[in-house]
Design a binder for these strands. Structure first.
Length: 268
DNA sequence: AGCCGCCCAAGAGTTACTTCA
DNA sequence: ATTGAAGTAACTCTTGGGCGG
């Protein structure tokens, strides 16, 4: 499927070279994921065992389970290895699971779209999988997306079709969120590791972090703005009070000038 | 040492799509 | 069923830093 290729295309290097490096770095990446997901896992466990109990949306299981790198030619069955560990067991039915989690699953060729639609309707209404929003036909096979051979990869460039917006699953978002809490920027290795872990394209992870930083900044700006507004109101009020005081003192002074005797008695 | 061109990453701004009331 | 607002994934453009020639 696509991940293998996506990793190769990812940084504009091809074939063997990358493959070799991948093998060498794989362990390292797993370590990165391990570290990155540690906090997330701990939190999950805390929530599951302890407080809140609320349950909500099925446990994630152990996010660290196998990160097996599939060969591009992996059989559908072997795709299970790619399921995010939190995938509920019942969804580990190959077909369902793939559609549910592989946001970037290369869509069926256009002519087949309708046929496959029926299959799609059987599953979650998630736009990710609906025929209507079926991802760009021929869409960056292999998450190719060209993960920018220079920071400017667009799906449009890749396949001549408009962008396709894919909704990330709650689990993916939650995991990204946790990673963001750990560090709000990613180095290439972390990006790859995260992408692999979440079965997303590195470009998606990158974009998510960009947007997330933008949101954070926006929120912070709003907070700052609110704070400055309150400061302004406080200062305005203080200014009014002082001006009133000045006016009173001036009045007093004027009165004193007019009637020195009265003032002396007033002061005493 | 200073300049230039290239590459890359990040931010800002925008667009397109989804979801929900 | 329709619609508008809000949220957000993905895009383009710009900027700035690092590096080699």
């Amino acid at each position: 499927m696509e991940l293998g290729l996506s990793l190769r295309v990812g940084y504009g290097r091809g074939g063997e070279e990358v493959e070799r490096e991948e093998e060498e770095e794989e362990e390292e990446e797993e370590e990165v994921v391990r570290v990155m997901s540690k906090g997330f896992r701990e939190r999950e466990e805390r929530e599951r065992s302890g407080g809140g109990g609320g349950g909500g949306g099925g446990g994630y299981g152990d996010p660290l389970v196998s990160l097996s790198l599939l060969p591009p030619s992996a059989s559908p069955k072997s795709l299970l290895g790619f399921l995010p560990p939190w995938a509920p067991l019942e969804t580990r039915n190959v077909d369902v699971a793939i559609q549910r989690f592989d946001v970037n699953r290369p869509p069926p060729p256009p002519p087949l779209l309708l046929e496959e639609t029926e299959e799609g309707t059987a599953m979650s209404p998630s736009p990710n999988n609906s025929a209507v929003s079926a991802p760009k036909p021929g869409g960056s096979p292999a998450g190719g997306d060209g993960e920018r051979a220079g920071s400017k990869g667009s799906d449009e460039d890749e396949n001549g079709l408009g962008r396709k917006k894919l909704r990330l699953s709650k689990e993916q978002s939650a995991f990204l969120e946790e990673s963001f809490k750990e560090h709000n920027t990613l180095n290439p290795k972390q990006k790859l590791a995260l992408a692999k872990q979440l079965n997303l394209r590195p470009r998606q992870v990158e974009v998510w972090f960009q947007n997330r930083r933008a949101r954070t900044k926006l929120k912070q700006t709003e907070v700052d703005c609110e704070y400055l507004k309150r400061c302004c109101e406080t200062l305005t009020e203080e200014n009014r009070r002082l001006q009133r005081e000045v006016a009173e003192l001036r009045a007093l002074k004027a009165a004193a000038a007019a009637h020195p005797f009265v003032l002396r008695r007033f002061v005493l």
